[in-house]
Design a protein around this nucleic acid. Structure first.
Length: 700
DNA sequence: CGTGCGGCCCAAGAT
DNA sequence: GGGCCGCACG
């Protein structure tokens, strides 16, 4: 669809628009129509409370813009995840299709520039690469790869051999990343967040310089670079003007979870704020650990002259009034926020429940039982979600679900892409894409018998300077003791580099090469081969190797499921998710696990008030996902790790500090199971000790 | 120079 | 249980 034909379509009468906007409430409508007359197209901030119809409002706003003749190719929509981008795109398509029948046919081509900051950054950088003398075939390092590269550089600089221990690779990367994303000095990051590393400041600075240098030599970018290079392009006035004109409207979702570098990018694109819309909710800021700052949203209005218009959405369409009463009370105890209480017309007699159980095991039993009971009451499994702070918190529940044959899909936590065998195959593809990518090459070559770090490095040195990678591989001599495996590797590499069968057939050839090695290295090869089949299925959804590698790195498949495989789309399955991954979603019934101090807030996050406040918002985010039923579970006892098998060392935990007695009346408190008065725990314990003594007696 | 083994420390959230 | 490091062997 060209700009011209859209403009033509837009000049036609759009009787549908007013009808569509009728469905919005006054605040939503104001946000959607902002700047419609063209007279006031200044910056707009939408403070959108949980469940206040944010996606819908934003989608209508985009619909209004398009109906008003704005070229959709000039609309840049930045979201937090690809899932959110997809959701928004579909919503906009629906609206555009309804506006005018003639548009229905082309609605699916609407919004080519919807995506995450990182994804859009990658696209723009490839497009502009040649202009600033960079190879557009760069590959992207994920967090783990970046840490590995940091480690290599660290070893090169001999920083690992000091008498006093130098910070670990992950710490180095975290420091580097904080400096880049928060746009502050190394001194400040060290002093504020890594005080134990202050003594290493000079060495860290040298390390980071070498890290940047290594990335450039190899033609690789890390996550932060996708933003950083973009920001630097925009620091060039001519390019900033060009890109700013190219995108007449820039809309940013989840603005509370953006960082200083992202704000810099927006300022570069829209210095005066005209055409800029930010949407977010300061009460749901939960990504400070990644450099996000709530100051972005708090300071947005006054950043411009005249200041941005602020529209606040407080009507909640998601949850029942009793659930909102509880969530309002929880967030009401927060120390600083844009004050706004949410209200709803959805009445209900059911207060959210706080259920106390004995331990992790009982929690799993209770949740499984409740989930099934709700399904009997016609709440599909898909309409129910179990949320938790850390991925490992669902381990016991997952066992119970498997035992009871309840299918589930888990979001967040360890991903399928992090499995060694999947990374091995991807590394081969990355080496084909970019033969200078040393992290990928290092990994692939060392799979071969007889190749260790030294040999791999030597080989990669040769590859880095070669103009023809396949010829360079052929020219290398086979390592001692691994001639056969080497020949197979070289043949596969040559085939793919010279007469590639295309995508996704390439991936199958790589898998075929890899499988014998996989069987040598791992006992459970069948399970891992299953993962490779899954990878092939995913690969078929992408147009090219480059798209596959880029998108997979930037948006890894978020879900893993049990061995039964990914449930079919039409099947019913329970949702398990970390709270972070649950952002933006909603379910009829929500269960929050481990609502105790030590889990929420995590005992790793109680260092500063700011951290604790973020944990409070995390609980708030979890609770506000619920539409009809909310259950918060408080296990009293936690078994301690690192003890002999069958050990029963445990600690007692208290209900999360974010639900103090003062607001407990918003909840219905109960225990499970209902304890029969004569089931004394003392008797059973005595029996256990007796039994243990008898077992020992067998051997004395 | 590559590989395998044993000891040590750690264990969250994710583009 | 896993990642990381140092050490001994081939």
């Amino acid at each position: 669809m060209s700009a011209a034909s859209f403009a033509r379509a837009a000049t036609a009468a759009t009787p549908g628009l007013d009808t569509l906007l009728e469905r919005l409430n006054p605040e939503q409508r104001a946000a959607a129509r902002h700047g419609e007359s063209g007279a006031d197209a200044g910056p707009l901030l939408i403070i959108a409370g949980a469940g206040s119809g944010k996606t819908n409002t934003l989608a209508h706003r985009v619909g209004c813009l398009i109906a008003g003749g704005v070229d959709p190719h000039g609309i840049l929509l930045l979201t937090f995840s690809r899932r959110a981008a997809l959701q928004m795109t579909q919503r906009v398509e629906g609206i555009v299709a309804k506006l005018d029948e003639r548009w229905a046919r082309i609605a699916h081509t609407v919004l080519p520039w919807a995506g995450t900051f990182h994804g859009i950054g990658a696209r723009l950088l490839r497009e502009y690469a040649q202009r600033y003398a960079m190879d557009p075939a760069f590959t992207i390092l994920d967090r783990e790869d970046a840490a590995d590269l940091m480690n290599l550089v660290r070893a090169d600089l001999k920083l690992s051999e000091r008498e006093q221990r130098f910070p670990l690779k992950a710490t180095c990367l975290a420091i580097y990343s904080a400096v880049v994303n928060r746009q502050v000095t190394l001194e400040r990051v060290l002093a504020e967040d890594f005080p134990w590393c202050v003594a290493w400041q000079a060495e860290l600075r040298a390390l980071f310089a070498a890290y940047v240098h290594a990335k450039q030599r190899q033609g690789v970018l890390d996550y932060d670079d996708l933003l950083l290079y973009w920001a630097h392009l925009l620091a060039e006035p001519a390019l900033a003007t060009e890109m700013g004109h190219r995108f007449s409207h820039v809309l940013v979702d989840e603005y509370q979870d953006t960082n200083a570098l992202q704000a810099t990018i927006l300022r570069g694109l829209k210095p005066d704020g005209r055409g800029l819309t930010a949407v977010g909710d300061d009460a749901q800021a939960i990504y400070a650990f990644r450099g996000a700052t709530v100051r972005n949203i708090l300071d947005f209005p006054t950043q411009f002259t005249p200041p941005a218009r602020v529209v606040t959405l407080t009507r909640n369409y998601r949850s029942t009034q009793p659930i909102l009463a509880a969530t309002n009370a929880v967030i009401g105890l927060a120390s600083e926020r844009f004050t706004k209480d949410l209200w709803s017309e959805r009445g209900s007699q059911e207060r959210p429940r706080i259920v106390t159980v004995a331990d992790d095991g009982d929690q799993a039993h209770y949740v499984a039982e409740q989930v099934l009971a709700r399904r009997e009451a016609a709440v599909a499994l898909k309409a129910q979600a179990v949320l938790f702070r850390a991925s490992s918190h669902s381990a016991m529940l997952e066992l119970e679900l498997v035992r009871r044959n309840i299918p589930y899909l888990k979001f967040g936590g360890l991903k399928f892409l992090e499995a060694a065998h999947v990374k091995d195959v991807l590394a081969f593809l990355r080496l084909l894409e970019n033969p200078r990518d040393r992290i990928a090459g290092f990994r692939v070559l060392q799979l071969l018998p007889g190749v260790g770090p030294k040999t791999a490095n030597r080989m990669l040195d040769a590859l880095a300077v070669a103009t023809d990678a396949a010829a360079a591989v052929e020219a290398l001599s086979a390592p001692a003791g691994g001639a056969l495996e080497w020949a197979q590797f070289a043949a596969t590499f040559r085939l793919l580099a010279r007469q590639s069968p295309g995508w996704p057939a390439e991936l199958e050839l790589v898998s075929r090469w890899y499988e014998p090695l996989l069987r040598q290295r791992h006992d459970n090869a069948e399970v891992r081969e299953g993962d490779l089949r899954q990878l092939e299925a995913i690969a078929s959804g992408y147009a090219s190797r480059e798209r596959f590698l880029t998108e997979l790195t930037l948006d890894p498949p978020g879900a893993t499921s049990d061995d039964a495989g990914v449930p079919m789309k039409d099947e019913d399955y329970l949702i398990l998710s970390t709270i972070h991954s649950a952002k933006g979603q909603e379910w009829r019934a929500v269960y929050v696990l481990n609502a105790v101090d030590g889990c929420i807030p995590s005992d790793l996050a109680t260092g500063t008030t700011a951290e604790i406040e973020e944990e409070r918002r995390l609980l708030y985010v979890a609770m506000t996902r619920a539409k009809d039923h909310l259950t918060i579970i408080v296990p009293q006892r936690f078994y301690v790790h690192q003890q002999g098998r069958r050990g029963d060392r445990h600690v007692y935990a208290a209900r999360t500090r974010f639900i103090p007695d003062a607001i407990a009346d918003r909840f219905e408190l109960s225990g499970w199971p209902q304890v029969a008065p004569d089931a004394s725990p003392c008797t059973s314990q005595a029996a256990a000790i007796d039994l243990a003594a008898r077992m020992r007696g067998m051997w004395t």
